[in-house]
Design a binder for these strands. Structure first.
Lengths: 231, 231
DNA sequence: CGCTCAGAAGATACTCAGTCCCATCGCGTC
DNA sequence: GACGCGATGGGACTGAGTATCTTCTGAGCG
């Protein structure tokens, strides 16, 4: 069923009509008529009127989950930050559609709520992933919630900025910048996987009994991983 | 309109029916009938079927906004953390209703989405408040987003725990504990209002090309400002 | 070439949420 | 007792979403 030509026609008809008359003033019959199919057919291809606007979310969620599962990162934050890039990439790949949806969602409260619910699903996925990862450590559930919320918040902030700018700049730089806040906030709360160094990065830098210069370098590296405002 | 006896009757009828037959299997007519009023009257008192489950959210949002506006806290995080207590208090005050709603929401996806949308409104309020407060400082918008998301996440985590435990323990201790993470994470990123201490500990330490010992001390100081679980 | 069978599309009827409008009723006021 | 007014009842209407039945189409096969 994915990517059938009729799905495409329906989506195009819908966006055109939403653009011309607005979301509420457009009925499913209108959409079907413009696409040259029957109302029944519409509901065979989209579960609801809203679904025309928010497609592929399930597939994307699955992709993100797969990425998490395959992650080789040493900490949960890093794994999740890595995974959230997929989401942004998805928006950027379909910039045209994303922008159109953004404009529409800004006007229709029902759609806004729906979008928020979608985002919450990613957040939940992240939360559960992190909770599993951290399982056993103190306040695991709480930290998982905070991490997931922060990563999603960082993503949202960058995405909104990109959308407001009508997709004119590359958003991955800003995303990395934003995620740096999150990573530096949470990374030191975790023990990196595999190694049995019960300490944070900073301390590890000092463990290697190196020259002061080496120490300084390590520390600088640590600092470079921080958000600029902190330097 | 608030607190009319008929509103109460409707709410009681609705919760009873939702409990007996489930949410989807209960029609608005059923509710109205059991409450002994007409369908029209139902919609005069509640905008929608979902509204019977989520009352007072607007009023609560207003209360939270008022608390924020009247805040005397020295940093934005603290102000927001303080405000979020009102939300939890509201749930705890109506423990019976909150628990019933929790059970119902767990079963009906549509209600879950609706609740998420409600929470998003608080988050937005917080975000805008913090963004105003931080206005001008670097990455203000990003930090506002992160702070708001974190405070809400902390609240949600505690609330869910309390609900899962069927309201048997006091949740304000856990809430404060959770908010400590958030406050210690964000507080040092803000200049307390009024005072003019423009640097963070870390920066000062490394700018001065000091001996490794001085560096170590500075880092320890930095670590001491972190959440307890980290030490 | 024509038959068959299955999957996809059309057609129709139904339920129910939500909106609108109008008639009515209770009730206090003048 | 007439008037006004807010709240209620009642009924009509729109539109989303579901279920069911019929019709088409096209691929495979004799």
């Amino acid at each position: 069923m994915p990517r059938s030509p009729i799905r495409r026609r329906l989506a195009e008809a819908a966006t055109a009509l939403f653009d011309e008359r607005g979301y509420d003033a457009t009925t499913v019959d209108d959409i079907a008529a413009r696409a040259g199919v029957s109302r029944s057919t519409f509901f065979r291809h989209y579960r609801s009127k809203e679904d025309v606007i928010f497609p592929e979310h399930d597939a994307l969620l699955a992709k993100v989950a797969a990425r998490l599962a395959a992650s080789t990162a040493d900490t949960a934050v890093v794994a999740v930050c890595d995974a959230v890039r997929i989401v942004l990439a998805h928006y950027v790949d379909d910039a045209e559609v994303s922008l159109q949806r953004y404009r529409l969602v800004g006007k229709v409260p029902a759609l806004r709520d729906r979008e928020i619910a979608s985002v919450a699903r990613y957040q939940r996925l992240f939360r559960e992933f992190v909770a599993d990862w951290l399982d056993g450590s103190p306040d695991a559930a709480l930290r998982a919630e905070l991490m997931a919320a922060s990563v999603v918040a960082a993503h949202n902030q960058v995405l909104r900025g990109w959308l407001r700018a009508e997709g004119r700049h590359d958003p991955f730089g800003p995303l990395d910048h934003a995620l740096q806040y999150v990573i530096t906030t949470f990374r030191h709360l975790e023990k990196p996987r595999g190694r049995e160094t019960s300490d944070r990065v900073v301390v590890a830098a000092f463990r290697s009994s190196a020259s002061p210069d080496t120490v300084m370098d390590a520390i600088r590296a640590q600092l470079d991983a921080r958000p600029p405002a902190d330097r």
